[in-house]
Design a protein around this nucleic acid. Structure first.
Length: 125
RNA sequence: UGAGUGAACCGUCUUGUCGCUCCGGUAUUUACCGGAGAGGAAAGUCCGGACACCACAGAGCAGUAUAGCGGAUAACCUCCGUCCACCGUAAGGUGAGGACCAGUGGCACAGAAACCAAGUACAGUUCGGCUGUAGUGAAAAGGCUAAACUCUAUACGGUGCAAUGCCAAAUAAACCCGCGUUAUAAGAUUGGCUCGGUCGAGCGGGAGGGUAGGCAGCUAAAGAUAAUCGGUAACAAUUAUCGCAGAUAAAUGACAAGACUUGACAGAAUCCGGCUUAUAGGUUCACUCAAUUU
RNA sequence: GGCACCUUGGCCGAGUGGCUAGGCAGCGGUCUGCAAAACCGUUUACAGCAGUUCGAAUCUGCUAGGUGCCU
């Protein structure tokens, strides 16, 4: 196992507007409060196994400082767990925080691992 | 010692491991090495500019803003000094602080009477609709009100980096309605209107459709720090040193260990000067009042 | 990021600086065997804080919340 599997550079981030629209129109969702994952297996030109985005709604968390911190926590815990993902095809996904209070790192990490296990089961079937 | 006033500043830190963005180098297709990486308010968008385009920006009206006096500045609803008014024992603080002897309007309730005046009660009287007192009210005939219209002085062209320029990709031609085609020309430039200037053969609307990627603008700037010097001060000049974020679904995080005062408000998006609002705690300097001691 | 606006009872909504209309809803009553309708009565408001004024929903500033536009 090499180091680079723990990395999460910019080429893995979900950017295209068309892909994001398709994701929210057709995608499937998994929830483990306060986290929600919207994902969609789809083909795209980038050379990566997945594209991922992180989002915190402004209506739930008012202050920009706290929104940035939640996104950073989600990005960090995804970076640590990304090798647990076992995807048969290219997938785009968006992680959304739906709580109204500030979380800590451990709860986000645990909830995210629950969702990733569920996602692996569904995709293997 | 206690209470207070006014300025200026800091606003968690250190080490290690993993990770993010940009720049430079090595290597060459994903790695390694080095460097840099949010704030005093980055916020509100309340003022003022720079910059870009519209004619380097025209005329008049309309409109908006400001308002003792003097200065600073690129500019300002900013800052400094000072006069006056009010508040405070004081240090200090607050002030949209020109003009109702240019004109127009407004002055509820109460009161006999409220803004071209008119005239209640009582008393006095030189008998004149004269004088005084009472009473209501913020104000009773000369006042208040311009953060009422207005006048005076000064300033202001418009739109804002989603400006603007370039590259790439995509499509759509036709249809319906109105106006116009060598002129007294539709329309565009201009925005509330009028004029002037320039362009001008197509233009405006409806319905329907395509794209919504990249590059430049983009960070070196009315720049920061220190010293000297001019000025009461804001500020200016000279010299030396430094080289200080630049993302674009949007970069600062996680874990471990340690320290203390146990850490507030809060995240850059074209860039500066201010104002306003939020802010745990701490530091320094100057000054005032009270008490005590020498 | 930039620009333009809005805020009056539970809801809609009028309002020249001088006691904040009106409708719907709610509550109580009359009527009815019971309800509906109708009628009578009644509760609840100027987003917040300052300033100007004798006096602000109204004029001015700041704050909070909300809405629309741009390519």
């Amino acid at each position: 196992m090499t180091n680079h599997r723990y990395k999460l550079p910019k080429s893995y981030s979900l950017k295209r507007k068309l892909l994001i629209e398709a994701l929210f129109n057709k995608g499937y969702s998994l929830t483990s409060f306060p986290l929600r994952l919207v994902y969609l297996p789809i083909s795209y030109p980038e050379n990566t196994p997945f594209l991922v985005g992180f989002s915190v709604p402004k209506k739930k968390i008012k202050k920009a400082v706290n929104r940035n911190r939640i996104k950073r926590l989600m990005r960090e815990s995804f970076r640590k767990q990304q090798q647990e993902l076992n995807l048969p095809q290219k997938t785009i996904m968006m992680w959304i925080y739906s709580g109204k209070k500030m979380p800590d790192y451990n709860t986000i990490y645990q909830k995210m691992s629950l969702i990733i296990n569920d996602l692996n089961k569904i995709e293997q079937q």
